Simulated scan of single mutants.
Amino acid sequence: MSGRPKGAALVLRYAGFAVVATLANLGAQRLVLAGAETVDGAWLALAMVCGTGVGLVVKYALDKRWIFYDATRGARAQGAQFALYSAMGLVTTAIFWVTETAFWLVWGTDLAREAGAVLGLSVGYVTKYLLDRRYVFRAEAAA
C-alpha cells in the first residue's frame, strides 16, 4: 500500500505515538500520585503500574493501526496478539522502570523521576519497535 510511511516519515510517526503514549503514562502516574500525601515506594510502584497499563493500551492501538497496518480481526486473535505485544514489552518495561526508579532514588524529585521515565521510555520504545516488527506484526510488516 503506497500510503504507508517509510523511512523518516515512519520514524516521526512512531516517535509521535511514543510521545502520546508517554504523556498518557505520565498523566496516569500523576493522577495516582495526586492521592498520596508523600510519595513512597508503594505509591511510586502503584503509579508506575497504572501508567504502564494506560501507556500500553494507547501505544498498542496506535501501533496496530498506524504503524503496522494490522488487519487482525476477532477477539481471540486480537487477544493473542495483544498478549504477545505485552510480552515483548516486558524487557522494555524493565528498562523504563529501572531508569525512572534510579532517577527518583538518586535525585528524589518529581522532575528527575519524570526525566528518568522519558529516557527509559525512549530507549524502551526503540527496542519495542524492533521486537514488534519481528515477532508481533510480522505478516503486515513484511507486506
Rank of each mutant, 00 (worst) to 15 (best):
L105S: 05
T38L: 15
Q81F: 12
F17R: 04
G120W: 01
K64V: 06
V136L: 00
Y125R: 07
A71C: 07
R30N: 10
E37H: 12
A94F: 14
A75W: 03
I95Y: 05
L23C: 11
F68Q: 07
L33H: 01
K64G: 14
F137L: 09
G79A: 05
R138K: 13
V49G: 08
L121H: 06
F103T: 08
M48I: 11
V19F: 11
W104L: 10
L26R: 06
V123W: 02
E114S: 06
A94N: 14
T109F: 04
E140L: 02
A47D: 09
G108Y: 02
L119D: 02
A21D: 03
G116N: 06
Q78G: 14
L56P: 12
A15I: 09
C50Y: 01
A115H: 04
G41V: 10
A141G: 06
V32G: 05
A87S: 10
Y14V: 14
Y85P: 15
T101D: 13
I67D: 03
V39I: 13
A47H: 08
Y125W: 03
G27H: 03
T38A: 15
F82Y: 15
R13D: 14
F82K: 13
M48A: 05
Y14P: 09
K59V: 09
A75S: 13
G35C: 12
E100G: 09
